[in-house]
Structure formats: structure tokens, C-alpha cells
């Protein structure tokens, strides 16, 4: 986050064969309406592509939307990639459809927060702001 403009940068991605993009578009709009810069990468990206993009864009938060059921393979892979790129100061967030026990496991692995179905805009915006504030300036 920048001291002068205070603009939080977020990259939102859909990874794998998941074509459900309504949710990610809702999230993009509510973060924009909260004054953030949102980079959207579109459908069917690979974890490598998304982490690459997040690093080049120097985002505060990398948000992944997953409704396909592949979250337990994709998200741990992304955590690994972020570590390998020496970019684990980028906060990883996820949302979509996943069972509660997976959410708990993912948070243990290092996913900053997981927000599921019907998460209201205030919660999404508030969570992003909280995680960025907790990380502190870099």
C-alpha cells in the first residue's frame, strides 16, 4: 500500500477449468467501489500465470475465486509458488464454494481468509482492509 495515495491493489483471478465468474465480478465491483485498484485476469488461468501477474503488478492482495471443487490442489500450489518467488508478503485470499473443513485446512496452510456464498460487500471490503493493515507497510 502506498503512503500517499493509500490505494490498495488487488489482483482477482479464476484458476483452472472453472467458468463461474459471477462471484468474482461482484467482488471486483465492490472493491472498486471501495476505492481500490482491481486487476482482473479473466478465466482459465494457471497458478503460475496468476502468481507471475501478481508479482509484476505488486499487489497487496491476490484473490482467487474457486467454485469448481479444485481448491485443495490449486491453493496449496499457489502458496508454494508465492514462497518460491519470494513473494509471500502478498496476501492470498479465496472465495467461492468449498466445505468448512477445507476452509480450516487452507487457513492453516497460509490462506489469509476464505469468504463463501453470500459474503456481503462490507465483509469483503473490510476483510481486505484488515489483512492489509495487519501486514503493515512494506
Amino acid at each position: 500500500m502506498s503512503e500517499k495515495t493509500g490505494v490498495i491493489r488487488v489482483l482477482l483471478a479464476k484458476v483452472g477449468l472453472d467458468g463461474h465468474d459471477r462471484g468474482v465480478k461482484v467482488v471486483a465491483r465492490c472493491l472498486r467501489d471501495a476505492g481500490m485498484d482491481v486487476i482482473y485476469t479473466g478465466l482459465h488461468r494457471t497458478p503460475e500465470e496468476v502468481v507471475d501477474a501478481a508479482v509484476q503488478e505488486d499487489v497487496d492482495v491476490l484473490g482467487v475465486s474457486l467454485l469448481s471443487g479444485a481448491h485443495m490442489t490449486i491453493l496449496p500450489r499457489m502458496i508454494d509458488l508465492l514462497k518460491k518467488t519470494d513473494a509471500d508478503d502478498i496476501i492470498l485470499m479465496a472465495g467461492g464454494v468449498m466445505p468448512d473443513e477445507d476452509v480450516a485446512a487452507l487457513k492453516k496452510l497460509g490462506v489469509g481468509e476464505v469468504l463463501l456464498q453470500d459474503a456481503p460487500p462490507e465483509t469483503i471490503v473490510g476483510t481486505v482492509r484488515r489483512l492489509v493493515a495487519e501486514r503493515g507497510p512494506r
Binding site: G35, D37, V38, Y40, G42, E49, D52
Partner: peptide, 25 residues
């Protein structure tokens, strides 16, 4: 809001993993 949705990357696929390409929105 002063915020923005930056969507140019949606079109810029297939350039990833190449250190000879750097894209910034």
C-alpha cells in the same frame, strides 16, 4: 470511488513465465 477495474490483462494471455515480458496495469 476513485477505484478502478483494470482489465487489460484479460487479453494479454500467453505471455507469462517469460522474463523478457513485463506487464503493469
Amino acid at each position: 470511488s476513485g477505484g478502478a477495474i483494470l482489465g487489460d490483462r484479460v487479453r494479454m494471455t500467453g505471455l507469462s513465465g517469460d522474463p523478457g515480458v513485463f506487464i503493469r496495469s
